[in-house]
């Protein structure tokens, strides 16, 4: 699965597209990213396992905030930093 990384997270990844193994759930995909880029997860998922307010996940183009959502066949995860104000 490819993961499209927003500019706000590129200090972690250094690149805009990352390829990871297919993941059973959205949470597992984020865990895989964090294992590769330590610290990334806490910036987008809070300590109560909720997606932070201005972060959006699109799985194959569909918006989801459910970290338990099964995505075993997903081909693309797009992370967006959205609407945080001025």
């Amino acid at each position: 699965m490819i993961v499209r990384i927003p500019t706000v997270l590129r200090s972690y990844t250094g690149i805009d597209v990352v390829e990871i193994e297919s993941a059973a759930t959205l949470a597992a995909a984020v865990d895989a990213l964090d294992a590769r880029f330590p610290g990334l997860r806490f910036r987008i998922i809070d300590e109560q396992r909720a997606v932070r307010p201005h972060i959006k996940f699109f799985v194959d183009g569909a918006l989801t905030r459910d970290l338990a959502a099964p995505i075993p066949t997903a081909r693309e995860l797009m992370i967006v930093g959205a609407l945080s104000g001025g």
Binding site: P6, P38, G39, R52, I55, G81, A82, S84
Partner: peptide, 23 residues
């Protein structure tokens, strides 16, 4: 923190020349 990203702490051990995020 930033408008999008959650809170963190950055640390420098060389008077601010370089910084590393808290684990």
């Amino acid at each position: 923190r930033t408008g999008h990203l959650g809170p963190t702490v950055f640390r420098s051990t060389d008077r601010g020349r370089t910084w590393k995020e808290a684990a």
